[in-house]
Simulated assay, not measured.
Amino acid sequence: METVEQLVSFHHIQVQLSGGAPWGFTLKGGLEHGEPLIITKIEDGGKAALCKKLKVGDELININGSALYGSRQEALILIKGSYRILKLAVRR
């Protein structure tokens, strides 16, 4: 269980990527593995790198306004369903 201090210390960052896939980042973890969804790689020169907001280690918590419940499969479906704009919220 997270303490109030831990919850308050998180920064939530809103990111918007445009232009369509590939978005230029890799996810690891998920409910299936008992881990949070974490960004593990950002491709040099990719859309995620160009926005300069995402960082390796960020936890993905929302895609296009849909709260994530931790499933990597769910996240991938939402990401792949984003044709021109991808809006992410991450916790750092």
Rank of each mutant, 00 (worst) to 15 (best):
L37S: 03
E35A: 13
D44K: 13
L50K: 02
G46R: 01
L27M: 13
P22S: 02
C51T: 05
K47C: 13
L50D: 02
G29N: 07
I42R: 01
T26W: 04
A48R: 04
L54D: 02
T26L: 10
K52I: 04
L27R: 12
W23S: 08
L50I: 01
G24A: 07
I38S: 10
T26R: 13
G45S: 02
G24W: 00
L31S: 13
K52N: 05
G46L: 08
W23V: 15
G34Y: 09
P36S: 14
A48Y: 07
G29K: 12
K41L: 12
T26P: 04
G24N: 01
G57L: 10
F25E: 08
G57P: 07
I39M: 05
V56W: 11
G34M: 08
C51S: 10
E35C: 14
F25D: 09
K41P: 05
G30H: 06
L54Y: 03
K55C: 15
W23E: 15
D44R: 12
K28P: 03
K41W: 11
G29F: 11
G29E: 11
I39R: 04
K47P: 12
D44L: 14
W23C: 11
G57W: 09
I39E: 02
G30E: 06
I39N: 10
L27N: 15
L37H: 03
V56R: 10
W23P: 13
K47S: 15
I42C: 04
L31E: 12
G34N: 14
H33S: 15
K52Q: 15
E43C: 06
K53C: 00
H33N: 14
W23N: 12
A49I: 07
L31Q: 06
D44P: 13
P22I: 02
L54G: 07
L50N: 05
C51R: 05
G30P: 06
K28G: 07
G29T: 10
W23T: 14
A48C: 05
K47N: 12
T26M: 13
P22F: 00
T40G: 15
E43T: 14
W23L: 14
G46M: 00
L37R: 04
L27I: 15
L54W: 01
I39H: 03
F25G: 05
K28A: 09
G57F: 12
F25R: 00
G46P: 12
A48F: 04
G29P: 05
C51V: 08
E43S: 14
I39W: 05
L31R: 14
G46H: 01
C51H: 06
K41T: 07
E32M: 04
C51W: 00
D44A: 14
K47I: 11
T26N: 05
T40Q: 09
L37Q: 03
K52D: 10
K52P: 01
P22M: 03
P36E: 08
G30I: 04
A21R: 11
A48S: 10
C51G: 03
P22Y: 00
T40P: 03
L31D: 08
G30C: 09
G24I: 01
P22T: 03
E32I: 04
I39P: 03
K28L: 12
L50E: 09
D44N: 09
G30K: 08
E32P: 06
K52R: 07
C51N: 11
P22N: 02
